Simulated assay, not measured.
Amino acid sequence: MKVGIMGGTFDPVHIGHLVAAQHACEQANLDEVWFMPTHVPPHKVEAPKATPEQRWAMVCRAVEEHSHFRPFDMELKKGGVSYSIDTVNELLLQYPTYHFAYIIGADMVQYLPKWFKIDELVQKISFIGLQRPGYIWDMELLPEAIRKAVLPVQMPLIELSSSLIRKRLAEGKSVRYLVPDRVNEYMVVNGIYEPQAAD
């Protein structure tokens, strides 16, 4: 079984995440993509606006109709800061016959040498780097062990981010078509990211 790991804060999950997962699934011949929300991401200073429970609920709704996508709550259950090496060790313990690959953006590929225990990580899993139009990366700048662990995958340019969605919702604007319908419904019903009343 070849599984792609789509990690992230997912605050909220949006169609850009789903498009990236689909392209990775097709071009890297993955059997499944597991969407794994982080509890506390190590690379981000700002805490997520939505609660872990809300982010999990949105991910579940986003992937429910795709036969190859699965929500996976290992890092949310564990709590605390999520380091990839700890997650990978736990995954390989639970699924010793599976091959795992992290799906990451092109900008994150260049950042790989700074990942915690990256030398150990590249011995255990591979990486799928999403190459979007207009972004140039230089694989030659990466150490050989990391370079060998990265599979480049082409992806269309989608100018969409969770922060943009939060901003639009905070301004009272619609995000329909930017997130799956069931995610949009959940955000509206639960008042997540809604406009803040002025003091």
Rank of each mutant, 00 (worst) to 15 (best):
P152M: 02
W137F: 15
L141P: 04
L142V: 11
V153M: 05
P143S: 06
I146Y: 03
A170N: 13
R166G: 14
I158N: 05
I158S: 03
E140V: 08
E140C: 07
L164I: 12
M139H: 06
P156C: 09
R168Q: 14
A145N: 15
M139R: 11
K148H: 13
K148N: 12
L141F: 10
D138Q: 12
E144D: 13
Q154A: 11
V153T: 06
A145H: 15
L160H: 01
R147H: 04
L151H: 07
R166F: 10
I146S: 01
L151F: 05
L142T: 10
M139T: 08
K167C: 06
S163I: 04
I136G: 00
I146A: 03
I146H: 03
M155K: 08
S162D: 01
S161M: 05
M155G: 05
P156F: 07
M155H: 10
P152W: 01
M139N: 08
L141Y: 12
R168E: 10
S162K: 00
I158Y: 02
K148I: 12
Q154H: 11
E159P: 02
S161Q: 03
W137I: 15
K167F: 05
P156W: 08
A145Q: 15
V150H: 00
I158D: 04
A149I: 13
L164V: 12
S162Y: 02
L151G: 00
P156L: 08
V150C: 01
K167Y: 09
P143G: 09
M155T: 15
L141V: 11
I158E: 09
A145D: 15
I165F: 08
V153L: 08
I146P: 00
E140F: 01
S163C: 08
I165D: 00
